[in-house]
Amino acid sequence: MRRAVLISLCLLCCILLADLSFAVEGNTRKGKFLYRKNCRSCHGVSASDLSPLSKTQAAWKAAAASHESIPCVKDWPQLSAGDRADIFSYLYAFAADSPTPAKCD
């Protein structure tokens, strides 16, 4: 029982940390996959083009912190906090002013 509580606490911490420090915790490769699956279905097709190069790292970080105010958030598919962290980690890691800006998306 005690072990189960500990595991639950650890999981809760992981989720919270992932949300707070997406740039460190998120999986950028998984994020690229999720971005293509969930964002590119509109952006570049029926909505404005979008790629990691669309913003600086600071701007992506700010966008992640207040993702609720992103205009198209109501159109987003169901995304877990972990998925969102992965997507923003990808966008942040390959931003316009990042050490390795995205070549293609």
């Binding site: 490769r29 998984k30 996959f33 293509r36 699956k37 590119r40 570049g44 097709v45 293609c104 998306d105």
Partner: peptide, 16 residues
């Protein structure tokens, strides 16, 4: 302009 695509995800892949 390009033709976008969705690459699959493999959980058994290494991290990097």
């Amino acid at each position: 302009r390009d033709i976008p695509f969705e690459a699959p995800w493999f959980d058994d892949n290494p991290a990097d």
